[in-house]
Nucleic acid binder design. Sequence first.
DNA 1: TGTTTAAAACACAATCGATGTTCGATATGT
DNA 2: ACATATCGAACATCGATTGTGTTTTAAACA
Lengths: 253, 253
Amino acid sequence: MVNTDRLRQITDAVREAGSLGVGDLAALTGASEMTIRRDLETLAAQGVLERFRGGARSLLVRGEEPPFALRAQEGVEAKRRIAADVAGLIADGETVVLDSGTTCLEVARALRGRRITVLPLSLPAVNALADGPGRTALLVPGGRPRPGEGALTGPLTLASLAALRFDTAVVGCCGLTAEQGLTAYDLDDAAVKQAAIRAAQRTVAVADGAKLSRTAHAFVAPAGALHTLVTDATAPRSEIAALGAAGVAVRTV
Amino acid sequence: MVNTDRLRQITDAVREAGSLGVGDLAALTGASEMTIRRDLETLAAQGVLERFRGGARSLLVRGEEPPFALRAQEGVEAKRRIAADVAGLIADGETVVLDSGTTCLEVARALRGRRITVLPLSLPAVNALADGPGRTALLVPGGRPRPGEGALTGPLTLASLAALRFDTAVVGCCGLTAEQGLTAYDLDDAAVKQAAIRAAQRTVAVADGAKLSRTAHAFVAPAGALHTLVTDATAPRSEIAALGAAGVAVRTV
DNA sequence: TGTTTAAAACACAATCGATGTTCGATATGT
DNA sequence: ACATATCGAACATCGATTGTGTTTTAAACA
């Protein structure tokens, strides 16, 4: 794996300045220009930025989420703890639909080898569960993987969800407040989350604390639709209280 | 990757003897017992053999195909050549459904970055196409991945295929003769292949020479249903002639 | 055509993965 | 229940792969 810190540095710097030259980035990061070019190639493949002769310009709009590969590195500790707690909420023999996103990917890793049936809604989660020991029954939904993200969306995904029922849906989110409910950045993604919640008897939301004071563009479900929320200690107390009042069982790990 | 030669050696030895002890296998391969145990764990996860205290017994029945991980290593050269030829048969802008199997996996690699739409019917092929440059439109079918193989089968897969139409189907096979047609080892797999052929206007079969004198258990389609066959120089001439007479355009690479 | 930038080829270094050894835990047989 | 054998975990080591830098060659822009 390439140096993630440097990729993040480049992403931030280019977003900040709008566009930057290869030489500037080399000076900023201390790496050689060749390495910068390879990094730009990587980031361009993720849709983070666009290359032009001499440098690159950012494609990230203010308010949009950073790319998957970078998000996956942030707050790994908290995500692992959240994932472990969620795994404890799942009983053997259950059928589970598992949302896309970095936190849910950690949940997938925590569920490896468990004697359950899982339908993961993203390719990284599928891969995390695919080559494990044979006790886990794995189902793959159809869909179009979003570049970089691997999140499966579209009519095929919705059709797969419409054909199935689950005991538990584990959904991630981009924003969650008691007032605005659960929200996502991507419209297609939001539709998939809705279908997942609809197909399951119980909905467990996962969200690190930063998500709880944020609202994204696409509405998914009111807070009352969630049975349980697993979050971490950085979550604002007022929001936890409000969600509790809305009927959500909040677990702080 | 672990030493594939040793895995093959173990697989063959255990199949030959029915069951063998860890010490015997260590002596045979020259590896330590710990390594043998790790190998047995790997092979057991692939369904090749069953472990018991002190050794392992084979689960491979005569006539069944060896596990995916081992097949993928055999005749790589020929498969690459076949795959390259198939890639040449696909025009830009086409929609393609790509079967499971090791040869089709090579086709997936040969198609990376091409400006086409692909629906791969196995997880390894999905992964081979997933992180490539963004020009390839990737669709994932639903289904249950077969352990070790990653081939997607079952109702979700058939439903995905029923909802789509393609210009070209690239199908692998376990056996192919002019008389018996295209055959597969697995019934579910055969059903998927049938659906793929039905969903496509043109069917391109890929098969190394060894397949052309073999017949597997599950019938998929008569030879006449194939428009093109890409095989290698080891294919028996008589069979090539018979397939040609059945209306198949045979390409030998 | 001259200059700058990108890409390819090669060399080096750091990291990761596979293998082996040791040791404690567990199962088997008498 | 005890003795013995086997298994799995932890650690160390070796080798291979991958990332990085440098140099050279090709391509793009003025």
